[in-house]
Amino acid sequence: MALNTPQITPTKKITVRAIGEELPRGDYQRCPQCDMLFSLPEINSHQSAYCPRCQAKIRDGRDWSLTRLAAMAFTMLLLMPFAWGEPLLHIWLLGIRIDANVMQGIWQMTKQGDAITGSMVFFCVIGAPLILVTSIAYLWFGNRLGMNLRPVLLMLERLKEWVMLDIYLVGIGVASIKVQDYAHIQAGVGLFSFVALVILTTVTLSHLNVEELWERFYPQRPATRRDEKLRVCLGCHFTGYPDQRGRCPRCHIPLRLRRRHSLQKCWAALLASIVLLLPANLLPISIIYLNGGRQEDTILSGIMSLASSNIAVAGIVFIASILVPFTKVIVMFTLLLSIHFKCQQGLRTRILLLRMVTWIGRWSMLDLFVISLTMSLINRDQILAFTMGPAAFYFGAAVILTILAVEWLDSRLLWDAHESGNARFDD
Rank of each mutant, 00 (worst) to 15 (best):
L165P: 15
M103G: 03
G235D: 07
Y182F: 04
C34L: 00
F123L: 03
A307S: 13
I19F: 08
F123D: 08
S39R: 08
S301Y: 08
A392C: 05
P390V: 08
Q33M: 10
N148S: 04
Y182W: 05
W267K: 12
W162I: 02
M80G: 09
Y138C: 09
D35G: 04
D99T: 08
L191N: 03
L306H: 00
C34R: 00
L154E: 02
D166K: 15
M356L: 12
I131K: 01
Q186T: 10
A83C: 03
S206I: 12
R294H: 06
C236I: 00
P52E: 05
D367P: 00
G61Y: 12
W64Y: 05
L139T: 05
F38M: 11
Q186H: 08
A314S: 11
T327V: 13
L270M: 11
I403P: 04
I98Y: 03
R250E: 05
R259H: 11
S376K: 07
Q33P: 06
I319K: 10
S372N: 08
Q29I: 07
S301C: 07
L277M: 03
L377K: 00
L255P: 04
I403L: 14
V313P: 06
V370E: 01
N4F: 07
L139C: 05
C343P: 15
W214A: 15
P32A: 08
Q344P: 14
V406R: 01
P254A: 05
Q29E: 09
M120A: 04
H46I: 03
L384R: 00
M356Y: 09
E407F: 10
A223M: 14
G246A: 12
Q295Y: 15
Q7T: 04
L257R: 06
H90L: 04
L169C: 10
L208K: 11
V317S: 00
A307K: 15
I199C: 15
S286G: 11
M120Y: 10
Q344G: 13
S48V: 11
Q264V: 04
I106V: 11
S206M: 15
P41T: 06
V357D: 05
L276T: 12
A56S: 09
D381G: 11
R355W: 15
I403R: 03
I274R: 00
P254K: 08
A269C: 04
I322E: 11
S321H: 00
C343Q: 15
T9P: 11
G127C: 08
A196G: 09
T67M: 11
W162H: 08
M332Y: 06
F82G: 05
D166E: 15
Q244R: 13
L159Y: 01
M164W: 04
A83N: 03
T15N: 15
L23H: 08
R158H: 08
H237M: 14
L404A: 09
A183E: 00
V399T: 11
A128P: 02
A73I: 06
Q108V: 09
R250G: 12
P24K: 12
F74N: 04
W408A: 04
I339L: 10
V357S: 03
W214V: 15
M332T: 06
R256P: 13
I43M: 09
G293H: 06
D181K: 01
G113F: 09
W359Y: 11
G246P: 05
D427F: 09
L404Q: 15
V324D: 01
S273V: 14
L384M: 09
Y50R: 06
I383A: 03
Y168K: 10
L306S: 00
M1W: 00
F38H: 04
R258N: 07
I403E: 00
L337K: 13
R97M: 14
S301D: 01
F141V: 15
G302C: 02
L153N: 07
W415A: 09
M332I: 11
D381H: 04
S135W: 02
A115K: 01
A314H: 04
Q55Y: 06
